[in-house]
Amino acid sequence: MDTAWEKAKFKRPKRKIIDSLFRLAAFSSAVLVVVILTLILMTILIRSLPALKLSMIIRTPGTGYYLGHEGGILNAIVGSLELISGATLIAFIIALPGVIYLNTYLKKNSPFSEAVRFSLDVLWGIPSIVYGVFGFLLMLAWHLRASLLAGMVTVALVELPILSRAMDETIRMVPSEIKEAAYSLGASRWQTAIRVILRQAFPGIITAVLIALGRGLGDAASVLFTAGYTDRLTTSLFQPVATLPLAIFFQLNSPYPEVQQRAYASAAILTFLILLISLVIRFFSRKLSRHKIK
């Protein structure tokens, strides 16, 4: 007994030092992360201020816009919104029934559901540039040109795994007792799914949709060859469409400082939209945890 005791006394300073060093390392990493993250937001905000005018968001590019003349990026804002609403709608229409089938008709660990979930994992990991390539190949096969429609389909494919996995997770969390209670009342599987499970999982589904919207909004690589770009507002599915990330990208490549500054302003606008989405997500996920049955 006393040997261990002696050793304890002997070892104590070293253990204390390691403990403090570890805490210090953890703390400084956290500080570093906070500093970096603040730096990003501050950089974007400060650099964008000179060009952040109302005309940025209410006007389309005028003549000579890319030489530094008058105009705004309304085309890209509207285009992005058109693109992601269409894309998310398509993705949702495919994802929802699939996820319901996974969770109501199939047994918990059936090889089918394993395979589907694995393919969702794979799709989730595929870089969006590859989706862009695949979208381009689809365009060729369907004889489409770069257009709102082609962009929507491509972004829908990017969003599909994100949406499906997020919805799958919330629907899987619906307690099986609730399902069983509904079945025992004579509800069919579909009725159960629609009336009981979806209601229970509703905030989670909204969150999933918002996450997908955010991803679609920020994704540039997938629309690079499929959506095209235009200085006008897009009014038809078959016209090319401008998107915010690409607007930033193109303006940044301009040699004119005025135009580059507009790129910063566009970045601030995009950041603001993402912030909005993430705030709404917070709101809904707080609701989600409030209704969760423990």
Partner: peptide, 12 residues
């Protein structure tokens, strides 16, 4: 517990 106190000797 003993290992935390620095006791690594197997024979102990």
């Amino acid at each position: 517990g003993p290992r935390l106190l620095g006791q690594k000797d197997k024979s102990y």
